[in-house]
Amino acid sequence: MTPTTSDLDFSVADGIVVVDKPAGLTSHTVVARIRRLAGTRKVGHAGTLDPMATGVLVVGLNRATRLLGHLQLADKSYDATILLGASSSTDDAEGEISPVASAEDLAAVTVESIEVAVAGFRGEISQVPSKVSAIKVDGRRAYERVRAGEEVALKARSVTISRYDVVDVRPGALGIEVDISVDCSSGTYIRALARDLGAELGVGGHLTMLRRTRVGAFGMSSAHTLEELGETFTMLPIADVASDTFPRFDADAEQAAAIRTGRPLPGLKLTAGQQTAMFDPTGTFLALYEPHGPLAKPTAVFVS
């Protein structure tokens, strides 16, 4: 993807900004800052990061905000640090910490036992989300209920951990620190991985550092800090994002006219089970289409 940093009026431009979110800010705060920098109110983000987390936050401008919902299902990558030996009310360092393990318990935890435990969390697993997640319970976010002193019981859900590597294991002041790198499906809670690893080893565990390094095709190589964006506002045009994210179909003039009004198209050989990015002869991104039997039908149209 080729970023745009010209004199283009970003208040009317459609595209994606990949932010390297700093610790201490909510995703909502980052969106507000991008809104001011771009001079537009039409700004949204895909894949919330907790305030303590850093790294890739994908932000959409103008019509690209509608594309975000189609990007949220992408796999993600994280680097994280787990502290074994103590549990947390929030499964991370921001909660109330409760020591679980004795010195003898921690002494029994070896690199080999950690590797064995980690192996059990690879592949498709059933995971109970953290109680302080944004999942709604009877109309209210789980974290709101927890902070109000309520007991919250969330249902397990199926997630896929395609990579779960132990990068480093070292003694820390409060327990054993374990650095990990994870590739996972959307809906995976890294805090829950920390909690469950500690439980599997019988010593408790919680997350102390989290950095998201990739969301789908967007990695750290295309991310910019808020300070950098304040100096040079860099955006990935919506056409580049669509072309790099989805299979591409270049329509002729007659097909493009139909696509602009969201009409079904017969006879197109689009990739089964995937959305396809539809472009007109000038290279303008028009819509996302999917095959439905003998027809290709729109899932979203981005031009009028």
Results as ranks from 00 to 15, higher is better:
Arg195Asn: 06
Val152His: 09
Glu151Thr: 15
Glu228Asp: 12
Ala199Thr: 13
Asp196Cys: 09
Ile161Asn: 05
His206Met: 03
Asp240Tyr: 04
Ala142Ile: 02
Cys184Ala: 14
Ser185Glu: 10
Asp165Phe: 04
Phe233Gly: 04
Val166Thr: 13
Met235Tyr: 09
Glu227Arg: 13
Tyr164Ser: 02
Arg163Cys: 11
Leu197Pro: 10
Gly175Val: 01
Arg195Val: 01
Arg191Ser: 00
Ala199Pro: 00
Leu197Arg: 12
Gly216Ala: 08
Lys136Pro: 03
Val166Asn: 05
Lys155Asn: 10
Ile161Lys: 08
Glu231Cys: 02
Asp138Met: 00
Tyr143Ala: 02
Ala134Leu: 09
Met235His: 06
Val215Ser: 15
Leu236Asn: 06
Val169Asn: 08
Ile135Ser: 06
Leu197Phe: 01
Val178Gly: 05
Val137Thr: 02
Tyr189Ser: 04
Glu177Cys: 08
Ile190Leu: 01
Arg214Leu: 09
Val152Glu: 08
Met220Thr: 14
Thr232Ser: 14
Cys184Met: 13
Gly198Phe: 03
Gly149Gln: 10
Ala156Gly: 15
Glu151Arg: 03
Tyr164Gly: 02
Ser185Leu: 11
Glu150Trp: 05
Thr188Val: 11
Asp179Asn: 11
Ala242Lys: 07
Thr234Ser: 15
Lys155Gly: 11
Gly204Trp: 07
Ser133Ala: 07
Ile176Gly: 08
Phe233Met: 04
Ser158Leu: 13
